Simulated assay, not measured.
Amino acid sequence: MADECCSKGLTRRQWLNASAGLGLAAGEAAAAPRVNIHAAEPPPASADEALSRLKAGNRRFMEGRAKHTHENASWRHMLVEGQRPFATILGCSDSRVPPELVFDVGLGELFIARLAGNIIAEDVVGTLQYAIAHLHTPLVVVLGHEGCGAVTAAVDDMLHANHEPSHIEALLRLIEPGLAKVDLKQERDALLKAAVEANVRWSMKQLVAVPEGERAIRDGKVTLVGAVYELASGNVRFLSR
């Protein structure tokens, strides 16, 4: 490699000096002091701004223009001292719906709880309380998605009384009350779409029923919204309140 460089007008000494200089620069960069992430990029100042940032990121993702920012080593170094996510997401465990990609955000920007069917259980409530009380995220999004296996299983259980393993049965028991008003006689695609949306609203209703959650919403400390991710388009459809 050195001979090739020399043939292009660089002496061996010049090439070695340049290489040493690059190594020194890299070492200086690695030793650079950490930068405060809060000063580097202030988070949204309100729930409305946080929601706008999510919508803009989802639009980039949907259109194939994702930036994939805030994923490199320098950004990771800034996060060592702490986190300050601007929104909390309660989503499904489905591998096709990773919130960071769907909303085109990077490390440290979302506080996420994911479990099948985006259900509300005791540990989930504790996780969301932590996000509100300690991380002060102004926005909480319950994110369901089309083709949700947990919701589909709950619908089929209501229609046919299917038998699932015990822990899956326990999960379905948490979903089915929210589907009580869904018309089970409608065409299947419409039924499943309605059930997914009803399940999102059911999770939201349960969060509002928690005294601390109701108080935080009433006092304007947090805004709660629901949304459904559309698998084919990549669009996140936010539900009307």
Rank of each mutant, 00 (worst) to 15 (best):
A66F: 06
L110P: 02
L174V: 01
E71C: 15
G147P: 01
D48Y: 11
A47N: 10
V105T: 11
E122N: 13
R65S: 10
R173N: 14
H134G: 11
A121G: 08
Q129W: 07
V105M: 10
E100K: 05
A47K: 03
E122C: 09
K67G: 12
L135M: 07
F111T: 01
N72G: 14
R173Q: 15
F111A: 03
K55I: 04
A180K: 07
S46W: 08
S166E: 15
Y130M: 00
H68P: 01
D104W: 00
Y130V: 00
L172R: 04
R84I: 01
H70W: 12
V140N: 07
L135R: 05
P44G: 14
R76Y: 07
A170E: 07
S52V: 00
T137G: 09
R59E: 09
G91W: 02
L179V: 00
T137F: 10
P43I: 07
A161E: 12
N118T: 01
R60W: 05
E146C: 04
T137C: 08
S74R: 09
L174M: 11
G147V: 00
F61Y: 15
D123N: 11
Y130I: 00
K181S: 14
P138W: 07
G178S: 10
R114W: 08
S166Q: 13
E146V: 00
P99H: 07
R96N: 09
H163A: 14
I89Y: 03
E109G: 13
V125W: 06
I89T: 05
N72Y: 11
E146P: 00
E146M: 05
M78E: 10
P43F: 05
L107G: 08
G64N: 09
H145K: 02
C92I: 00
R114A: 12
D156N: 15
D157S: 15
R96K: 13
H167R: 10
E176H: 01
A47F: 09
L179P: 00
A161N: 13
E49D: 14
D104K: 02
H163N: 12
S95I: 03
D123V: 04
A87T: 01
R65W: 02
G108Y: 07
E164A: 14
A116L: 04
D123I: 01
G144W: 01
G149K: 06
A47M: 08
N162Q: 13
V155N: 12
D156F: 14
E100A: 13
V102E: 11
H145P: 03
L159A: 10
A45S: 15
R53S: 11
L128R: 04
R96A: 07
H145V: 01
A153E: 00
T137A: 06
A133R: 04
A150L: 02
L115P: 03
H136C: 07
L135I: 02
L135H: 09
R84S: 14
I132F: 08
K55T: 05
G117C: 05
P98F: 06
R96Y: 11
V182G: 06
V141E: 02
Q129A: 14
P99W: 03
V151Q: 06
G64H: 10
R60L: 14
G64P: 05
L139H: 07
K181M: 10
I120D: 10
T69M: 13
P99C: 12
A47G: 13
S46V: 05
E164W: 15
